[in-house]
Design a protein around this nucleic acid. Structure first.
Lengths: 203, 203
DNA sequence: GCCCGCGTGTTGTCATTGTCAACATACTTC
DNA sequence: GAAGTATGTTGACAATGACAACACGCGGGC
């Protein structure tokens, strides 16, 4: 399994993130990744079908990490509302700590690989990770809002929109710098925003 | 002023949107735009310094349109809360109706042109449009939340996050299709999400 | 012990693209 | 009518994504 580079597959993933951090996602190129790892320009194609596949793999990784972060944040909390808030804060924090992943998870026109044959046994392994993260949220939101069925979905969308929007705005530099200077500041901002909505208007 | 193509400058903008709609933003190329307009591959460079400048122009156009849409939506409304909600619904609607513009306005690593000389007289004309749209929101949010100064900013961020997050999620196909099938459905969804938060939790 | 096959990596190549320089042309202004 | 400038064109170059053909080295079957 290990050959020239130990594990070129995972090294490509981390190299891609490095390159994207320096040059932006648009400026990411497979050839540059290969160059940094000291392999030839075509080597990546032995591990990823094409550039899009590598980006998709990063997005998948991001969803997995996000799910873990969410679970960790809610660990030990019982109050549904507190759990939902904790998830929200963790969500924003994740976005700030892994901006490249987060952008790839969402911002991208998701180009599903396009199933060559529908009769394949593998049941959509590719899109499992996002569903995990979303499922976690739906559960937390349903409990917090005490809704079921269609209304639970609506509540989930609402509960998702706030941290998602905040995260996006932060990543796009739309929030004044002093509020996003440190991880602590970001968490505080997320908490403030969430609580502002909670107490928004009794009527 | 009008020459070969009437007004190649604006035609390039609309052509770019067309191409982006078909091939995705990543797949947009200046050469393809030129091809469609029947001009040579270098013609666009007489109207935009480079590809990034064209994208920036589209983003600018988007902010202008968004500001208009927001103003139109709030027109005739007096209740601050109603005004803020109207802005939110218009915001989401704008994103759905102009997805390419919206993505370019936000999703993009904003590459400011990088001022060659700071002593130039023009005071940042490029970034005026986003500030208009944001200013409109800050006003509406401050009024609705009855906050001032630093707290008003926080309220604005909160008020911005919801429609922004919802819009992003819709654009990324994360919302079940039946909720985004028509413009009416989208507006209803936006209204529901906003009102859900308003009545979230009295305590 | 030897051979074959396959996973992995390399070299070479092609079309597309962003960008620039040099050149050409039409409209404007005096 | 001439000069100047805005607009377009042609031709080039380097970088990139992607593919094909080839090379190497390790495993299993005889």
């Amino acid at each position: 399994m290990a050959y020239h580079h130990g594990d070129l597959h995972t090294e490509l993933l981390t190299a891609a993130v490095d390159v994207a951090r320096e040059r932006g996602i648009e400026g990411l190129s497979l050839r540059e990744c290969a160059r940094r790892l000291g392999v030839s320009h075509a080597a990546p194609y032995r591990h990823f079908e094409d550039k899009n596949a590598l980006l998709l793999a990063l997005a998948e990784q991001g969803f997995t990490w996000l799910t873990s972060a969410g679970q960790r944040a809610m660990e030990g909390l019982d109050d549904p509302r507190a759990r939902l808030d904790a998830y929200g804060v963790a969500y924003v924090r994740f976005a700030v700590e892994h901006p490249i992943h987060f952008r790839l998870m969402f911002t991208r026109e998701l180009e599903t690989p396009g199933p060559k044959r529908a009769d394949d046994a593998a049941p959509d392994k590719a899109s499992a990770a996002p569903n995990d993260a979303f499922g976690l949220l739906v559960g937390a939101a349903s409990a917090a809002f005490e809704r079921d069925g269609e209304e639970a979905l609506l509540a989930s969308v609402a509960a998702w929109s706030i941290p998602h929007g905040l995260a996006m705005l932060i990543l796009d530099g739309r929030i004044p710098p002093e509020h996003v200077a440190t991880t602590e500041a970001v968490e505080q901002l997320a908490r403030d925003v969430l609580s502002l909505w909670r107490n928004a208007q009794p009527a």
